[in-house]
Amino acid sequence: MNQLKEILEEVYVKERRNIFTFLTGAGVSADSGIPTYRGADGIWVKGTKYHKPEEFGTYRYFKDHQEEVWQYTLFRKKMIESVEPNESHIILYDLEKLLEERFHLITQNVDNLHRRAGNQNIYEIHGNYREVKCSGGCGEILPFPVDVKGKELTEEIEPEEIKHLKCPDCGSWLRPNILWFDEIYNERTHKIYSSLKVAKNSGVLFILGTSGATNLPIEIAKTTLKNGGYVVDANIEDNHFTTLLKGKKRVLTIREQSKDMLQSIKEVLEEVVNQDQ
């Protein structure tokens, strides 16, 4: 952990490009009981009762099977709402309190657990389950309808609930405000430019619980390296970031659980901050 301490101390005393950024993925929520996506038991590996997600989790599929996609969405919603933030989420909240405006959290997770733990400075690059948006021309983003509840996978959507899943302005189907496989990142919903700006100004980027299988997280890591920041890959196994970071300077690879890595970061930073006061 000596190298980690040296990185944290160096970044903390810098005047420019001194942001501490944490990029999180599904692995951070696994301890809360939410399955990961690409692990051995992951959602994207096992699929659903009907289809593999690369087909099911697309706007193309939604256009023809709205109720079926909503059935699975409400199943996920109920799962997410039944769990609590875990130790990793709590430590990330502690780190934001410690670092204040120098803390930034970029997450691929749509489960709202970071916000429930208390984090505020968050960039949700894959959207979230708190909101819906119109699938038609108006593109309105709205809070998730309060009259539409999470369900077991076998529960039917009631006719009255379907009424609440239609856009109040144009009548088109609403859809979850999340990024599907056949969609591209944008600023309004997915904070593509904001997150890349954060990456550019990061003194250190920590990668936690994500394999880097989508392109924006990889671009975030590339941007931090290009602008002289450190990248710390703190995952339990090799991943898409491993190839990107191999042989690069200003890179640290640590293979351990997110909660253990975050606890080490917190302990070192508490020491560094106390010394500075």
Rank of each mutant, 00 (worst) to 15 (best):
T73F: 02
K226A: 15
L113H: 10
E237C: 01
E96L: 03
G42E: 06
T214K: 06
G150K: 06
Q263G: 11
R175P: 04
I125R: 00
N239A: 00
P53T: 13
R188I: 09
I178V: 15
G209P: 02
S88M: 00
T243V: 02
Q71G: 10
S29A: 09
K166C: 11
E267I: 02
D111M: 02
Q257N: 12
G150M: 07
S258P: 14
E187S: 03
E152P: 06
E9G: 09
K77I: 04
K226S: 14
R38W: 04
E156K: 15
C170G: 15
V148K: 08
K200M: 13
C134G: 13
D147H: 11
E100T: 05
K149P: 06
V273W: 03
T210A: 10
I207K: 10
V13F: 15
V231F: 07
F144A: 07
E237P: 00
T154S: 14
I141A: 09
A221R: 07
A117K: 03
M261W: 05
N215R: 12
E270P: 05
K226H: 15
S194F: 00
S195G: 10
C138M: 13
S264L: 14
E152L: 06
S172L: 07
S32V: 03
V45H: 05
F206N: 12
E68I: 10
L262S: 10
E87V: 04
V45M: 07
K200C: 12
V146G: 02
I91A: 01
D147A: 12
R130A: 13
K78D: 15
